[in-house]
Design a protein around this nucleic acid. Structure first.
Length: 229
DNA sequence: AAATGGTTCAACCGCGGTTGC
DNA sequence: GGCAACCGCGGTTGAACCATT
């Protein structure tokens, strides 16, 4: 594995103008990827590990990277996306044109989280799920302890898909009732209503439940009972 | 002017996932 | 299947910069 232990073979620290020039020249000729080859090419004369080269390109040198202050629109978008996705910086950055995950993460940690007064805390969500027989065949009712759950949010930012594993942690006397824990991302705050849906799947069954989430209020729809945050 | 403390952000680290042999 | 190389992610670090005393 690269990056383990100290390695005098490669230089660390801030990049110089000359190093940037060499890296840009390499990408111009050979394209992105195969970052570890750069240092091995003696002609390049760049004593940087592949990981460092990749990061420098992705976060700074790439023409698609936007520099400068974040606009209000960008900040609004990041806040809303963070509400939905938590600290999934890469996913968030993918929806903020020109911004990298590192930029978004830094801006959140140094500015936005303070502006919003957000404290770090684990946000586990408990869901009581009541799956009817038409969703869960009687012969399958007790054999599943975990469901893959693809959760799709929909708000003004568009549709966002996330993946969660719901772990069955309890069941009561009703043979069609289950309690699940959704381990959401840290720092998740929900301050607007938004549409969301769950797509459950296991080897032999699939179920789809859609509802409008109203944060902090218990609600139920169809055969779902929401236990709140 | 110097010392100190706070902030910013580029870069590093460790880890998990993917790919290819 | 096992292994190594590679890629990408999120958390963390620390040098540089700025503000205050």
């Amino acid at each position: 594995m690269e990056g383990r232990h100290g390695n005098d073979e490669y230089k660390k620290g801030l990049w110089t103008v000359e190093e940037d020039r060499i890296l840009m020249e390499y990408v111009k000729v050979h394209g992105k990827g195969k970052w570890n080859r750069i240092a091995k090419m003696s002609a390049a004369g760049l004593k940087r590990c592949g990981k460092s080269c990749r990061l420098r390109w992705m976060n700074y040198l790439s023409p698609s990277v936007k520099r400068g202050d974040f606009s209000e629109d960008e900040e609004d978008l990041i806040i809303r996306l963070h509400n939905l996705l938590g600290n999934r910086w890469s996913l968030i950055a993918g929806r903020v044109p020109g911004r990298t995950d590192n930029q978004v993460k830094n801006h959140w940690n140094t500015y936005l989280s303070k502006k919003l007064g957000i404290k770090k805390e684990k946000n586990k969500v408990c869901v009581n799920a009541r799956l009817s027989s038409r969703d869960l065949g009687s012969e399958n009712r007790n054999i599943f302890s975990k469901f893959n759950c693809n959760e799709t949010f929909n708000d003004n930012a568009g549709e966002i898909a996330t993946e969660t594993v719901l772990t069955k942690c309890d069941s009561d006397d009703h043979d069609d009732a289950f309690k699940f824990i959704i381990d959401r991302q840290e720092d998740t705050i929900i301050d607007d209503n938004y549409a969301t849906s769950f797509q459950f799947s296991s080897d032999d069954l699939s179920s789809h439940i859609a509802y409008l989430m109203e944060p902090l209020d218990a609600f139920s729809l169809d055969h779902f009972v929401w236990d709140g945050l």
